[in-house]
Simulated scan of single mutants.
Amino acid sequence: MLIILTIMLVAVGALLLVHLLMLRREIGRITEQLGRYNERRTGKKMDVALFDQKLEALAGEINRQSNLFIESETNRKRAEKEFRQAVANISHDIRTPLTSILGYIQLLEAESITPEEKLEYIAVVKNRTRRLQALLNDFFELSVIESLDYSLQTEKLEMTGLLSEILVGFYDSYNERNITPDIRLPKEKMFVYADESALRRVVENLLVNTVKHATGHVVISFKRQRETADFTIVNDAKELVGSDVNLLFNRFYTADRTRSDQASGLGLSIAKSLMKKMGGTLTAELDGEKLMIICRWKLCD
């Protein structure tokens, strides 16, 4: 009996020793794989040859960490690219009016100019200065909105009446551009939770963008969906055909670098950031030559 017990203990010990050696070898193999991956000699993820739940779990977590690192690195590179593009664009947008201002100041210093020319040059300088001021104000506002400690005070707002009030304020702007918008608002009241000041800013930015860039027929509607209230603007946008309309919300993006002097290129980006802060969404879709911008809030009772 003692001999049998001894044999069993030796067998168990041998099995444990073999398993330990196999674990040791597998850990060494995983370490080698991880080393090659960290040195960028391979993009292959960890795999386990030995069937062991603990080792498989470890390899899974290593692979998960690798995926998180790749995602973080991708986001970092994209942020760096966007930042460089933003710097390039804001440099262009600041340099253009500044160059113009300096040029007209030199003209004003000339002794040969007439009083009429002087008034004309002063008007141009004022216009370029206002453009520069608007650009810097928008840039500062966007940086404040996107800061982590920026918060909004949400409350229950009745949207139909609020939208009607905002739209009335844009009557003259649309009329000056010879645009007669097709406005479709419901008779019923709809309520959402939002910050009123931020909501007004979002809607006004969208309408200003339409005034500046829309041509032809413009449809502005507000509808109740199953769980959301959707404010939608649809207008012709032939210049955007074939492009990524989501770029419209990027800082300083413009489909036309010869945009009007009053455009800062930040209006839609500010609107999207505010919607995100309010828990809503702002998206764009292209249907043929029609651009559809959709602003969506969650309905409340």
Results as ranks from 00 to 15, higher is better:
177 R>S: 03
184 R>Y: 00
282 L>M: 10
54 K>T: 15
231 F>Q: 05
247 L>Q: 12
160 T>D: 00
281 T>E: 09
194 A>K: 08
92 H>S: 13
82 E>A: 10
36 R>D: 12
133 Q>A: 05
102 L>F: 02
189 K>I: 02
104 Y>L: 04
20 L>K: 14
235 N>K: 10
26 E>P: 06
73 E>Q: 15
52 D>S: 12
285 E>Y: 07
119 L>V: 05
24 R>C: 05
194 A>Y: 01
254 T>F: 04
106 Q>P: 00
131 R>W: 01
135 L>A: 08
39 E>R: 15
268 L>W: 04
256 D>V: 11
159 M>K: 07
177 R>C: 03
278 M>F: 04
192 V>Q: 03
211 V>W: 03
26 E>W: 09
258 T>E: 07
77 K>N: 10
283 T>F: 01
85 Q>N: 13
214 A>E: 06
141 E>K: 14
191 F>T: 06
2 L>V: 11
281 T>I: 09
243 S>E: 03
38 N>D: 08
162 L>S: 02
40 R>C: 11
255 A>G: 15
223 K>V: 14
260 S>E: 07
135 L>V: 08
158 E>Q: 11
1 M>C: 08
138 D>N: 12
209 N>Y: 07
77 K>T: 10
184 R>W: 00
171 Y>S: 15
159 M>E: 02
244 D>M: 01
14 A>F: 15
141 E>R: 14
17 L>F: 14
150 Y>Q: 11
112 S>T: 09
224 R>W: 02
190 M>V: 04
80 E>D: 12
175 N>Y: 02
145 I>V: 15
121 Y>H: 07
80 E>R: 13
79 A>H: 04
293 I>C: 05
150 Y>H: 13
155 E>T: 09
64 R>G: 14
173 S>H: 08
81 K>Y: 10
284 A>D: 07
122 I>C: 00
61 E>W: 08
43 G>E: 15
89 N>M: 06
296 R>F: 02
43 G>L: 15
234 V>W: 00
237 A>T: 07
224 R>V: 10
105 I>S: 03
257 R>A: 14
180 T>V: 05
228 T>A: 12
65 Q>H: 08
156 K>W: 01
40 R>T: 14
14 A>I: 15
201 R>I: 04
113 I>V: 12
239 E>Y: 05
248 L>P: 00
157 L>R: 05
248 L>K: 03
39 E>L: 15
163 L>T: 04
187 K>M: 01
298 K>A: 01
184 R>Q: 06
117 E>A: 12
219 V>K: 10
230 D>H: 09
274 L>C: 04
